[in-house]
Nucleic acid binder design. Structure first.
Lengths: 209, 209
DNA sequence: TGTAATACCATATATCTGTATGGTTGAACG
DNA sequence: CGTTCAACCATACAGATATATGGTATTACA
């Protein structure tokens, strides 16, 4: 299989790839490694060996030093191209519980990045349960990105809290009241009666296969 | 609107929240800060102040030290309980042209962020055209995230270049040959004959509403 | 009044970390 | 043959880093 991008980078030697892979994996798990951690992991007997490889990797454009100042360069090695550019991270909730009071808190499952241009406002992500929206391509397990502050109009897909349950539905304002409409032929629209809360408008979706 | 998260932990004092927020933001941008970086950022005149707050944050369960050994604890402070999402930007191609040579380069439409844990390998995003995969929730206009290096197995959703066209399909290896199978009842599987190329495996999807 | 908690400051130190310097070995190349 | 280069090893050191110790001032509380 040919390579479609990253052609500008010079190819790596096996030893260099080992070093690069380890640095990359460390960064993915939290923080960049120190030179001596790389040394230990790959079984070298000298730091200088790591220095040589890192120097080569930087020269070839595979690594960058995030440390701006010379004074704070400890653990600053990161793979080039992994940037925070125009991304922002938002919290992921497994479930939006009723009330959301101090006694009934939200559980944050993690953080996911979204493109900054998806929304300017206050957002969160919600893991979708159920198949009520499969006809618009929203599946169980997907993460919907929800904007809390955008005003909701009739026809928008929303996250609503109703009868103590959080659901993703299409919101419709009809003559005889408000409706939460599923996009699944086997389910029927629900007329909203009593208290309910619009948690926000769905502005995006992410799915991991 | 009310706050949806982080209520289960003991509440933070304003000073503690400042420290926590800074650590969290640093982790999102690449690497955890050192005590002295926290000190400088918040304008303290002593490291001990930071020590006190960090100690309190750990005790209350807001922070964790990822450094397992006592010997390597530099820059090991990370928010507890949440897997810090590393954002990674990948190029978006509108179309994957045949050949992909130096004379026929890829046109990069932009960059989008993905969670770094989606894939370790070389990735790109592709804007989906057509409705051949609507039954697995891939719609026109969606961005599929494609991993170039992951090995493709029968049954995977792939991006393939065939007859000069780039398509998203399910790849199947049958007794009588290779097939590109659409997930749309109105379309039929295509048996691959002649040259074709697997551009990569679809590992994720993003949609903007 | 005593005591505990918060929020600071000042100083000291063992260890970690990046970097510099110089050397060895073996393969590739003209 | 000499040269280059990748891939190592050994040692040294200035500055960064986490940590420990011991302060002061304020507030809250019983």
């Amino acid at each position: 299989m040919n390579r479609l991008c990253d052609m500008e980078k010079a190819p790596l030697t096996p030893a260099q790839r080992d070093v690069y892979d380890y640095i990359k994996s460390c960064c993915g798990e939290g923080r960049p490694p120190s030179y001596r951690e790389i040394q230990a992991h790959l079984g070298y007997k000298a730091v200088g060996t790591v220095q040589d490889h890192v120097k080569a990797l930087i020269k070839k454009g595979w690594l960058e030093k995030s440390g701006l100042k010379k004074s704070t360069q400890s653990r600053s090695l990161t793979p080039a191209g992994i940037t925070q550019a125009k991304a922002r991270t938002i919290p992921v909730y497994g479930e939006i519980a009723a009330g959301t009071t101090r006694d009934n808190p939200q559980i944050e499952l993690g953080q996911i990045p979204i493109a900054a241009d998806w929304s300017k406002g206050d957002c969160f992500a919600l893991r979708v349960r159920g198949n009520s929206m499969i006809e618009v391509g929203i599946y169980e397990g997907d993460f919907v990105v929800v904007d809390k502050n955008t005003s909701v109009r009739s026809g928008d897909i929303v996250v609503a809290l109703y009868h103590g349950e959080t659901t993703v539905k299409r919101y419709e304002k009809r003559k005889d009241g408000q409706y939460l409409v599923p996009e699944n032929a086997t389910l029927k629209p629900v007329k909203v009666e009593g208290p309910f809360e619009l948690q926000g408008k769905v502005v995006g979706l992410q799915r991991k296969f």
